[in-house]
Amino acid sequence: MYRAKKREIAIMNVRFAATAVVFTLGACASTPPNPSDPGSIADPYEGFNRQMFAFNNGVDKYALGPAADAYETVTPRFARDRIGDFLRNLRAPVIFVNDVLQAEPSRAADTFVRFTINTTVGVAGLWDAADHFGVEHHSEDFGQTLAVWGVDSGPYLVMPIMGPTTPRDLFGSGVDRALDPLTWTEFDGDPDLDDKIAISRGVLSGLNARVALDDQIEQLNSQPEPYVALRRIYSSQRQAEIRNGRPEDESEMYEDLPDFDEFDQ
């Protein structure tokens, strides 16, 4: 009971802090995005953001990148794919809740069907069997849900390790964590097992994502201004995700278009 209470307090603190960030930074934002640039986003804290961008680049160069290279060397592609499918299946409950909150019944049904098929036929999610049945994957999070409800993103932020985000998405990530059933899972035989699982899940997710995005990261770092390029990629990516891949000038169309979750991690 103590551990459950401690976790509840921790999540409440995350939500409170994120809420404070939303209102404080949102109120302070003064640099509007360029309306002629669909990939623009307000960046009034560019000095701080550039420092965090340089810090994250250093962490990637000297820690995450080499760790991902070692992971890729010792882990066959087949095993990495199984790990990726398994981790993606674990996110299905959170995606399903956000589908429902966004009033997207067809997408919620797809998520439910995918989770059912992959957890059973796909052997606990180790294989994306649903994809072979034509039920394609899509990603949703509470930051997107807030956007659908009309909540403004606030200014662009670059956080240590976490990378590019906004106050809205930062708050949304805290809510998604609270929505994840694994956050509340307890194991009687090993009280610390849930923490070990959470850490292992985070490490594997980070390594798998870093390996998958190696080419994109190399292309980004080759740009004349990587910071600006990443800011545009993030803003455009999030706008496309919020529209569920629909063209901006045809947002009232309801057919599913290609998903834009390649840069999720």
Rank of each mutant, 00 (worst) to 15 (best):
S153N: 13
A240Q: 14
D215Y: 07
S153R: 15
G172L: 01
L213K: 01
V148W: 14
T145S: 12
Q144W: 03
L213H: 03
L193Y: 08
Q223R: 15
S173K: 11
R238T: 12
I199R: 11
P167H: 02
L230P: 01
L207K: 03
R231L: 09
A209P: 01
Q237G: 15
T166A: 04
T183N: 10
F142H: 02
I199C: 01
D194P: 09
R168P: 10
Q223V: 04
L157Q: 02
F142R: 02
T165W: 02
V148E: 14
P160I: 03
I161G: 10
Y234L: 00
P226Q: 09
V158K: 01
G150N: 03
D180V: 05
D188P: 07
Q219K: 15
Y227H: 08
V151M: 13
V203S: 00
Y156A: 06
D192T: 12
D194E: 08
D169V: 02
V211G: 04
R177H: 15
L204C: 01
G150V: 00
F142P: 08
T185D: 08
D214V: 07
G143V: 06
S200D: 11
G206I: 01
S235V: 08
D152K: 15
Q237D: 14
R177A: 15
R231I: 07
D169P: 03
M162A: 13
L204W: 08
G150C: 08
A178W: 14
P181G: 10
A198T: 12
L193A: 11
S173C: 09
I161D: 09
A198P: 02
F187W: 09
Q239G: 13
E186V: 13
Y156R: 00
T145F: 01
E225H: 15
W149A: 13
Y227L: 01
R238G: 05
L207D: 04
Q239S: 14
D214H: 11
T185C: 10
L193I: 03
S222D: 14
Y234E: 04
D169T: 00
G150I: 06
L182M: 14
S173L: 10
P226H: 04
V228D: 15
I217K: 12
W149N: 09
E241T: 09
L157N: 09
D194N: 09
K196I: 12
Q144C: 02
I242M: 08
R232L: 06
S173Y: 08
S153Q: 14
L230I: 05
T145V: 07
S200C: 12
T183R: 09
L207P: 03
L220M: 05
P191V: 05
G143N: 00
W149H: 10
R201V: 09
G174N: 03
I242V: 15
Q237Y: 10
T145N: 08
D195Y: 11
S200A: 15
R201A: 03
V228L: 15
